[in-house]
């Protein structure tokens, strides 16, 4: 491998622009209380991240993120929103400091880790020189397929992909259990009789 040195290249501006837009969208989502707007922004967030994936050479991921993240997820969230409420109520301020503390701790741990990270885009970084390059080298002769990602996905790490389909199946079963026939929806809504009874008994004691 050749020696690597980070140089300032114009692509930095593209990356910075995309990342800044992502950050602004995230902040807008945090602040907005119109759930419709939030859901739309989350679609935009996914689309922007798909664009960023292209800039990072991850075309398969960009494709999937655009289809699944910006497409299916947004549809799911839209229907979820339509079946519940359109507007978020203002929050009691009590919990924000605790949340901020947890988030800052997480962020600090990650920033701490970046100090020792190999430079962005370094071909000699362990992550890129170890197993990753082996896939690039072996796929051509072992699995005659031009797309290395597909080869790894379907063959070398095919078992993960089987697990992934199992996850989708599980989600299907879970949603059917929650919203399907016999889930105590509609005419047979969940009653809180049991809950009220517990409370009565609590007072009786």
């Amino acid at each position: 491998m050749s020696d690597f040195e980070t140089v300032f290249s114009p692509i930095v501006f593209l990356d910075l622009a995309l990342l800044t837009m992502l950050f602004l969208v995230a902040i807008a989502m945090l602040r907005s209380r119109h759930l419709f707007g939030v859901v739309m922004l989350s679609g935009i967030y996914s689309l922007l991240s798909a664009a960023f994936f292209v800039s990072l050479d991850a075309v398969d991921v960009a494709f999937t993120e655009a289809a699944v993240g910006a497409g299916i997820s947004t549809v799911l969230m839209l229907s979820g929103m339509l079946l519940t409420v359109r507007r978020e109520k203002p929050k009691t301020p009590g919990r924000a400091p605790v949340a901020m503390l947890a988030v800052l701790a997480t962020g600090a741990a990650l920033i701490y880790a970046t100090i020792d990270m190999p430079a962005f885009g370094d071909p000699n970084a362990p992550a890129n020189s170890a197993i990753g390059q082996q896939y690039v080298e072996r796929t051509a002769s072992e699995i005659p397929m031009p797309n290395i990602v597909t080869a790894v996905l379907a063959s070398y790490r095919g078992f993960d992909t089987m697990g992934e389909t199992m996850v989708i199946f599980t989600a299907g079963v879970a949603v059917m259990l929650l919203l399907g026939v016999g889930s105590a929806r509609g005419g047979r809504r969940v009653s809180d009789i049991d809950a009220k009874e517990t409370s009565d008994e609590g007072k009786g004691e």
Binding site: D160, T170, A184
Partner: peptide
């Protein structure tokens, strides 16, 4: 991670099945 999520996703739904007795 993949199998952890398989067990967790089914676990969430299974726990929610208790809603027939108590909505909590």
């Amino acid at each position: 991670f993949v199998f952890l999520e398989i067990s967790s996703l089914s676990g969430y739904a299974l726990i929610a099945m208790g809603a027939r007795r108590d909505r909590r």
